[in-house]
């Protein structure tokens, strides 16, 4: 029972808001019916109620623009041209994209509307639509409007960075679509971030000025890039110079061979006399001299050509591997897709 009471209370609270929406739309619908039935005198009060400050219900921007437009149309039919122009201008000022469908309105209404547009300069740009654009094959499209002939400057700029890119500068009248290839002034792909498209217009009829601005976020969709190979650290390269200790060990190794030769020919076969003692002496002398010469040469020069060559080969292999990685990464970056989504202001980019 308690639940039922709460449900009734909540329903009663929500009802006025729903009714408000319904009331404005309902009244606007009735006005449309009267207008289409040529009952202009019955439509006018309904439309005036909607735009009245005393109208107690919520009126959306589109509903208000629609009310002004039909007010203008009704008054034009009624022969009240000045008042019609006034209401048409009110509609145009609120939504510069407002237009009359020639198949639904009379030439007199269209002429009156054109007069309203001529007297009112307004520029606007439609909010950017969420989309996915491959800059190699497609373009990001912006729709801008000037209500009558005006010198219009359309500029794109990244929030907080760089100089703006001029996308259009010239005279325009009416709606125009402007395509952007995703590149900035340096002909590089625009980096991810928040951008604004600003439109500034100066009337060539009245000299009045107007401006409009939309924001959007730009993100990159790119395949994961490969890491390049790290630089060769000390553990990855062979020593290119012989250390002093290693040079000293050369002497020991030479003496080791010499000692072994003398040991073999002396101790191993003493009871048969030293076999070919001269040969062992040759080896011993050659080994001792080799050890000493190696020591001296390595102390003086110390380079290990084989290791130098091996290290150079490793560096070349690493560099070529990195070049291949960079090439693949460049291909992936070149295939970057732009993700565009509308934004509310200059706040933090995603």
């Amino acid at each position: 029972m308690r639940r039922l009471v709460w449900a009734v209370v909540l329903a009663a609270g929500a009802a006025p808001a729903l009714a408000a929406q319904g009331s404005t739309a309902e009244l606007l619908g009735q006005a449309h019916q009267f207008y289409e039935g040529l009952e202009v005198e019955r439509a006018l009060p309904l439309l005036r109620q909607i735009i009245s400050p005393n109208w107690p219900f919520e009126v959306t921007r589109d509903q208000r623009v629609d009310a002004y437009k039909y007010l203008g149309a009704c008054l034009a039919v009624a022969g009240k041209r000045d008042s019609a122009v006034l209401y048409f201008r009110a509609a145009i000022e609120r939504d510069p994209f407002t237009d009359l469908d020639p198949s639904l309105f009379t030439p007199a209404q269209l002429a009156t509307f054109a007069e309203a547009r001529r007297r009112t300069l307004a520029v606007a740009v439609r909010p950017v639509q969420r989309g996915r654009v491959d800059p190699r094959t497609a373009r990001v499209t912006f729709t801008v409007v000037a209500t009558h002939p005006a010198l219009v400057d359309v500029k794109l700029s990244a929030i907080g960075a760089g100089s703006p890119l001029s996308l259009f500068q010239g005279t325009m009248d009416g709606v125009r679509e402007i395509a952007w290839d995703g590149l900035l002034a340096d002909r590089r792909l625009a980096p991810a971030g928040r951008y604004t498209l600003g439109v500034v217009g100066r009337s060539r009829v009245t000299g009045a000025s107007d401006s409009a601005r939309v924001y959007f976020d730009l993100r990159h969709e790119v395949a994961a890039l490969e890491d390049t190979l790290p630089g060769l650290d000390r553990r990855a390269v062979l020593p290119e110079r012989i250390s002093v200790d290693a040079a000293r060990r050369d002497v020991a190794k030479g003496l080791g061979v010499a000692a072994a030769a003398l040991l073999i020919t002396g101790a191993a076969n003493g009871d048969l006399g030293a076999g070919e003692r001269g040969g062992a002496d040759v080896i011993a002398a050659a080994a001792a001299v080799t050890g000493v010469v190696a020591f001296l040469v390595h102390r003086r020069h110390g380079a290990i050509p084989e290791n130098v060559a091996a290290n150079a080969r490793r560096r070349v292999e690493r560099d070529s591997a990195n070049a291949r990685v960079r090439g693949r990464n460049a291909d992936r970056i070149a295939a970057t897709v732009l993700l565009v989504s509308p934004a509310a202001g200059e706040g933090t980019a995603p």
Binding site: A247, D250, G256, T290, G291, H298, I304
Partner: peptide, 13 residues
């Protein structure tokens, strides 16, 4: 086989 520094010479036992 033990290489002398530089690897161009080996002592052999």
């Amino acid at each position: 086989r033990m290489a002398f520094a530089g690897n161009a010479i080996h002592g052999v036992w």
